[in-house]
Design a protein around this nucleic acid. Structure first.
Length: 666
DNA sequence: GATTCTTCATAGAG
DNA sequence: CCTCTATGAAGAAT
């Protein structure tokens, strides 16, 4: 069970800032010692929790946002008083998300605390006439200043919050990408400033009350955000609640909202914006803000105010700070990536003369021990692997390409824990082998005739029509929306290979590595950062019809049954609840998958992926070389940003004790 | 409350 | 590569 530790009484008991090697949990205990009035966890919370979990057991994207979603009432000041008991001690973010789901699932909308930005009923007439006043909105959207620390998360809680965060980020990403696509479609291919999808997504989600963790100011880790998680935009950090400032480097509770009149820092971004920073990973010397001109040149002395004072106060009270690092990163959208690196203690603070000759405040931070490995260090390590593999990791590589150049990117085989070389003994299968009659359909001859490339705005592209009048991918090959099936352009199309509607047929793009682990046997990870919605690889095998599978002599568990994969694509990209006027085209569907795949002799990377009930990879059915709806390609896409060297996982859709991978590969 | 100020963004142009 | 500029949004301060 989770509990919330209020920090509001911290002014009563200042604490000397001794260097600490404690963990976050220890830190909570420290606070408990310091704060005489530690509020007990609300008993009602205990009964609340299981209910919450029940609510979330069958979450669908549709359920997340009901049609009757959230228009805020015009005048929040006159709104009825909150009906929520014990609002102070309840972890209200938990509550708010629960209410979203409850309302969406039952259609039964309750009045909830308007300050929590949960669903509030509004009559339809009001809704129709009124444009909400900005002022009213502003008030409703302000962040709380109440400091809490979330401790004692059970495994169930962690999975729950992980899922909430994952889906929130998925919505953010999809709005962001679609905003850019729409903007381009509207303007045609004309020049002009590109739409800021990152801003658009954030503001839209803000209107809908979908920003997380605004009801409390969380000290320490954010539920559902893991060390090493990667983000491409500062606004996304705001949406998740990891760092609430869209530009500023220090996030803090301001004096005006602080219970004791002192500002308290909760998170910082280390992004190289100040020349006096010194970043050694576990230890950081961080520069305060201020004193810069418009060109980011230090031109005057910094003052001990705002975030600078907040940092000093956090040090004084021994409050840990989240650290997010920003890097330039080629090959990703925006060319910048932000990595959550965990919690740091502020050990020291002093006023120093910076390189510019002007005075700056400096803060010595040390990473709290006992946390998972530094995400940014892994990123750098992976970068080094990509440029100089064997120098970086001299031993452990069993093969530098198990595909034998069949894939356009080498697939590595790594094992540094035992002598198992198993994956070497299978023939590498780049594409699924379908039975010959799969290609004998009359519909095979259909393709589009967009000689100069497919443009979906024109009605002439047959392939766009087949996909419900739109393409499945953006210009970077990112999946916009999961569908029962996707038709890419194929050999019968007149469009060039550069056509936007050809993605999975081009094969691997990221450097994958099959690796041996003590926990999960063989697994798969990537040396490259994989963006959410990106194509990863096909799940290949030799297709057997039901009859063939039946007479097949082998043990049935060694076959892959594609209809068992859980249909995660349905969670990806459905925004019909965000845009109320969103026209949902009717997508073609296909009959239930009725074939098995033999991977006993020929296989590719995919079958080494581990099973997870909260996977980061999903299956999407795709056609490109034939149109026989009985036999789609099983294409794997990233469901979230997958950091380099993090294990890929699939929901095989079976009971946890049965994993396809284990049955097949071990 | 409304307005001003600040800010370790972003995208594109030169 | 770099440097510069326009646009932008949130939150803190006033």
């Amino acid at each position: 069970m989770s509990s919330v530790v209020p920090l509001q009484d911290l002014n009563l008991c200042p604490v000397s800032s001794t260097p600490s090697t404690s963990t976050a949990a220890d830190a909570a205990t420290d606070t408990a010692l310091r704060v005489p009035k530690l509020e007990p966890v609300d008993p009602s919370f205990a009964t609340y929790l299981p209910q919450q979990q029940l609510q979330l057991q069958e979450p669908t994207q549709d359920a997340l946002f009901s049609d009757s979603t959230p228009e805020l009432p015009l005048d929040l000041q006159n709104a009825p008083p909150p009906q929520i008991p014990d609002q102070d001690s309840l972890y209200s973010e938990f509550h708010r998300v629960s209410e979203l789901f409850r309302a969406a699932l039952n259609g039964d909308i309750e009045v909830v605390d308007p300050d929590s930005r949960a669903i509030v009923p509004v009559s339809s007439e009001e809704n129709a006439i009124v444009v909400p006043r900005p002022a009213a909105r502003k008030k409703a959207f302000t962040r709380s200043g109440e400091l809490v620390r979330v401790t004692d998360m059970s495994m169930k809680d962690q999975l729950l919050f992980r899922d909430v965060v994952r889906r929130t980020r998925m919505v953010y990403d999809v709005i962001r990408i679609q905003a850019v696509v729409e903007e381009e479609r509207r303007r045609g291919e004309n020049l002009g400033r590109r739409a800021r999808g990152d801003l658009r997504a954030a503001s839209l989600m803000r209107e809908r009350g979908l920003w997380l963790n605004r009801d409390k100011r969380i000290v320490g880790s954010i539920p559902g955000v893991q060390i090493g998680d990667m983000f491409f935009f500062r606004m996304e950090l705001c949406v998740v609640g990891l760092h609430g400032q869209p530009q500023a480097g220090i996030d803090y509770v301001p004096i005006s909202q602080s219970s004791n009149g002192e500002p308290i820092a909760t998170s910082i971004i280390v992004s190289g914006g100040y020349e006096d920073d010194e970043d050694a990973g576990d230890a950081i010397v961080y520069t305060g803000h201020g004193g810069q001109d418009k060109l980011s040149r230090q031109c005057e002395h910094q003052k001990l105010e705002g975030g600078n004072l907040a940092m000093e106060r956090s040090m004084h009270y021994g409050i840990e700070v989240r650290v997010i690092r920003g890097f330039r990163y080629e090959g990703c959208i925006g060319h910048k990536v932000y990595v959550y690196d965990g919690l740091y203690k502020i050990l020291d603070c002093w006023f120093d003369v910076g390189k510019s000759g002007f005075g700056v405040y400096k803060y010595k931070l040390l990473r709290i021990e006992g946390q998972p490995e530094l995400g940014s260090a892994i990123l750098k390590f992976a970068q080094s692997l990509r440029t100089n593999l064997l120098a970086t990791r001299p031993s452990g590589y069993v093969s530098l390409d198990i595909s034998n150049k069949k894939e356009n990117v080498a697939v590595l085989l790594f094992n540094d824990i035992d002598n198992d070389h198993d994956p070497l003994y299978y023939e590498y299968l780049v594409g699924t082998v379908f039975p010959p009659h799969a290609f004998n359909q009359t519909s095979n001859g259909t393709g589009c005739d967009c000689v100069s490339g497919c443009i979906e705005s024109s009605d002439s592209c047959l392939c766009a029509m087949k996909n419900g009048g739109e393409f499945a991918y953006d210009q970077n090959g990112i999946l916009l929306k999961g569908k029962p099936v996707i038709f890419e352009c194929g050999p019968c199309c007149a469009c060039p290979p550069s056509c936007r509607n050809r993605v999975t047929q081009k094969g691997l793009r990221s450097r994958l590595e099959v690796f041996r682990s003590r926990e999960t046997g063989w697994g798969v990870r990537s040396l490259d950062l994989i963006q959410a919605g990106a194509f990863i690889c096909e799940y290949t095998g030799v297709v057997l019809t039901r009859e063939q599978a039946h007479i097949f002599t082998m043990n049935g568990d060694s076959l892959i049954y594609p209809n068992r994969f859980s249909e995660r694509w349905a969670e990806w990209g459905d925004l019909s609840q965000i845009y109320s006027d969103y026209a949902r085209p009717s997508y073609p569907s296909i009959p239930p998958l009725d074939f098995a795949m033999d991977v006993s002799r020929m296989r590719n990377v995919a079958c080494y992926m581990s099973h997870s009930s909260s996977p980061n990879v999903m299956v999407q059915c795709v056609f490109y070389d034939h149109n026989n709806v009985m036999f789609p390609h099983l294409m794997l896409f990233a469901m979230e940003n997958i950091p380099p060297l993090r294990e890929l996982s699939l929901d095989y859709g079976v009971a946890d004790e049965w994993t396809g991978k284990l049955a097949i590969c071990n």
